[in-house]
Design a protein around this nucleic acid. Sequence first.
DNA 1: GATTTGTAATGGTTAAACCATTTGTTGTAA
DNA 2: TTACAACAAATGGTTTAACCATTACAAATC
Lengths: 237, 237
Amino acid sequence: MFKAAKQTRIFQDVVEQIQETILAGKLMPGEMLPSERELKAMLQVSRGTLREALRVLEQKGLIEIKLGVGGGAVVQDISYDRVNESLALLIRYQKVSLQHLTEFRVGVEGRVSALAAERATPADVIHLKALLEQARQFAGKGSDFQKEFVEVDKQIHLSLAEITGNPVYLSLHHTVHDNIDQYYETFLFMKQREMEENFTDLGNIIDAVERKHADEARLLAEAHVLRFNHYMENREL
Amino acid sequence: MFKAAKQTRIFQDVVEQIQETILAGKLMPGEMLPSERELKAMLQVSRGTLREALRVLEQKGLIEIKLGVGGGAVVQDISYDRVNESLALLIRYQKVSLQHLTEFRVGVEGRVSALAAERATPADVIHLKALLEQARQFAGKGSDFQKEFVEVDKQIHLSLAEITGNPVYLSLHHTVHDNIDQYYETFLFMKQREMEENFTDLGNIIDAVERKHADEARLLAEAHVLRFNHYMENREL
DNA sequence: GATTTGTAATGGTTAAACCATTTGTTGTAA
DNA sequence: TTACAACAAATGGTTTAACCATTACAAATC
C-alpha cells in the first residue's frame, strides 16, 4: 500500500527538485543547469551531496554532464535508452528469455499491423510500398545483402508502428529491437529462399494494410514474426 | 556504431567492477558488500567517488543501502521496478495520452487472454473462477463496492498475465496500471448496471479460457477493456 | 528476566583544497 | 591580416578529514 518513507537523505530531495523542474518543462532539453558551485549555493547543500544527486539524475537519463569551461549538466531529450538498459539487465539476469521477448513481439506486431490497416492513409501505403521495393531488391541480390534486408524489414515494422499514431508502440519497437537485434546479428544468416519468404510475408502484410483488412494483417504479421524467429532458433542449435 | 569512450571517470569504473561482480553471480541477492570504508581501501578511491558509484548502482536497482551498524549495500534481486520507472518517465515526459495507453492496453489484454486460453491448466481455471465469484459478490453489493470490484477485476487480468508464463506481460501489467490507475481512481464511478456488465464480460472471458477458445477470449478481452475505458471517458467529460 | 543505557560501526553530510579538461582570449610570428 | 601558440579562467572530477545520525548489540541496571 505505502512506500518506504525513507526521506532523510538530502540528495534525494535534490534529485526530486531538479527532476520535477525538468518534467514540468521549466528546463527544456538542451538547456543547462547552473554549475555545481552555483547549485550547491542555491540548494544549500555540500558539493558532494549535490554530485550524488547529479549521478542519480544522470543514470535516469535526465541530464548529461559536459566537461570544461561552459560545461555542466545539460538536460537530455528523453530516449528509450534507460528503458532498454534496465530491460537488458533483466535479460542478463535471465529473468526474461529471448523466447519471452519474441513471443511478446509477435503480439505487438500483430496488433500494430491491424491498427495500421485500419488507419493507413494512401500516402502511408505509398511509403510502405517504396520500402517494400527496397526489400525486393535486397532479397534478389542474395545472402550478401541479408543485413540490408533485415534493416529494411525493421524499417517497415517501424513505419507500421508510426501509422498507428500511438507513441507507445513506437517506444516498444525501439526497446524490443535494441534488446533483440544483438541476438539476431549473432545468429541470423538467412538463405536466399528464406529472404524471399520474408519478402513475400511483408508484401502480403502491406497488401492487407492497403485493403484495410485488419484481421488478415494481424494474422500475417504474427506468422511473419514467428517465421523470422524460427530462422534464428534453428541457427542457435 | 561506436559508443562514447568517456572512461576518464573513476566512479564509472567502480560501477562496472561491482556490477560485473553481481551479474557474474559472485554476489547473490541478499549478500552484502563491504562497508564504504573497506571498499574505498580495496578500490583505492576516495569515499566521495565510491559513494557516487553506489548511487548509480542503487538507481540501477542492483543494490539497496541500509543504515546503522551492520548496514551497507545489500545486493538486490532484480525486478521490473527499474523498467517500469524509466517507462513511466518516458510516458510522463512524452505526455503519452490516456487514450494511447488504454489503446495499448486493449491489445495487450487481448493477446494475454488468447495466450491464457491456450495455456491455462485446470488449476488456473479454478483460481480464475474463485476470483470471478468475488467479483460477482462485489458487483451485487452496489456502487459502494466499486473500488473492491475494480481491484478484483485487476486481479483477474493479473492472473491471466501470470498464466501466459511470460514475465514481459507481467511487467507490462504493472507498468500500465501504475500509470493508468490514478486516472481511473479520479474519474471512474461505475453504476450498478455497469458493474454487472463488467462482471458479465469477465465471466465470458474466463469461460472462453476454460474452453480454450483463444480467439474468442481475445475479442472478449478487447471489448471488455474498451468498455471499461468508455465508462471513464464519459465521466471525464 | 526485562528494561535501560552505552558504545561502536556504518551510512550521510560538510568543507576546503587541488587536479584535469575545455573554451576563449591574447599575444606573437609569418 | 592571418595563423598558431601560449595563457587564463571556468567547470567537472577527485581527494582528504572531520563530524553527524542511525542502528544493532552488548553491558549495566532494576
